[in-house]
Amino acid sequence: MISVKELVRESHLPSNYFAPDVYIQGDLEAGLIENRKGARLLALPEPFLRAIYEGLAEEVGAASESVLYKCGAWWGKTFYRRFAEEVSQHHKQPLAEIEMIEFLQCFKQSWKTHGWGKVDLDFNFYQQGFIVVQVRNSAFATSGAALGKPKCFVEAGLLSSFFSGLTGQKLHCIQTTCESLGAECNHFVLGLPERVKRAEAWLQENHDHATIMDRLCQGQANR
């Protein structure tokens, strides 16, 4: 027999921690936007992001890509730490013990609530050592000049260190499709650096996402 009274007493009721109306709050008197834990949030206007992209490209040329990736990676490290802390506290258990589906729900909702687009994870290539991330309405695809190649370097860096934190292994991330090039969504492939970096050459040869995934998985099968 299930006792509702006992369930209420002992269990954690499911709820959406990152629901935007409760997660994003403000201290209007002080001119602050904060998350529900009191950490400051900033709303960045698109022209500012564009200015960073273009300013960097002008100053350091092609190196701006790796600078942006590193900025994203640094940001992702702290984002992961904050995410893990908040979600663990909310669920009253360590992140590693939270059910995978509940972790995914939190991850997807946090992305949406921060205004970074709609994210989905594809674990179909997990056995081969890859996780594919899809992002629609990315905040980073419209910034900066067209490069003729995927350009969400900040996002790729952010994902690399977020999932490195989560898995405890150093992961690299490459972007295989980009909304700025007319793709339906941004695709990012995460995996161990020596495995994923092989895809960079195929990207330069303009291979599509499906071909790149086939080749990456084939490479793993041949090992």
Partner: peptide, 26 residues
Amino acid sequence: RYAAMAMLLNNSEYLSRRILEWLPDL
């Protein structure tokens, strides 16, 4: 609980945001 609060607020978006958008995957 969320439905009762949404009723109090006369705001169905509250129910969607807090739980319904979240539940179908689970």
